[in-house]
């Protein structure tokens, strides 16, 4: 915004530096007030945020269930193929639960990046392996 106000003042050229400074100050003040008013929410921005939040909620709920189902499915097929009883089914259900939680943490990170970390809990305290290196997702 600052450079924009610069541009809009310069071409005139016939106002004193004091006037220009005053003009800039008023412009930035107006800008701040506008930001503030928008933040307080004229409804539009808030509604969009709520919609996005609901979108995240819907994603998290199914992501964790689907991972368990997929894990169980893989285990069941491997069991049938290798004739290994319920062993692999059990192992892969557990792995599915882990993958589901992994999905949720991943979605949470996207959420935290979008809404800021003001979401009630701080996953940054939990050290997961990929935090140290590149996140593979």
């Amino acid at each position: 915004m600052a450079d924009q106000s610069d541009r809009s003042v310069k071409p005139g050229g016939d106002i004193s530096p004091e006037e220009r400074a005053e003009f800039k100050r008023r412009l930035s003040e107006l800008d701040d007030r506008l930001d503030e008013a928008q933040e307080r929410g004229t409804g539009v921005k808030n509604e969009a945020g709520r919609g996005k939040a609901m979108g995240y909620g819907l994603r998290i709920a199914t992501d964790i269930i689907a991972a368990v189902v997929v894990g169980g499915g893989i285990g069941w097929f491997l069991d049938r193929w290798l004739d290994s009883g319920p062993l692999l089914l059990m192992v892969f259900i557990v792995l599915g639960i882990v993958a589901g939680i992994r999905n949720v943490i991943r979605t949470y990170r996207l959420m935290a990046a979008e809404f800021g970390t003001n979401t009630g809990m701080d996953l940054d305290d939990i050290s997961t392996p990929e935090r140290n290196g590149d996140d593979p997702n």
Binding site: T62, A66, L95, P129, G133, D135
Partner: peptide
């Protein structure tokens, strides 16, 4: 994509399996 970096080699096979399950979850969810 399925190999997380910065992980001890002993844990790697397990994590790759988890990543693959997580990837296969996508169309289902």
């Amino acid at each position: 994509f399925f190999v997380p970096s910065g992980v001890p080699a002993a844990l790697l096979p397990l994590l790759v399996v988890i990543e693959v399950i997580s990837y296969l979850t996508r169309p289902v969810s």
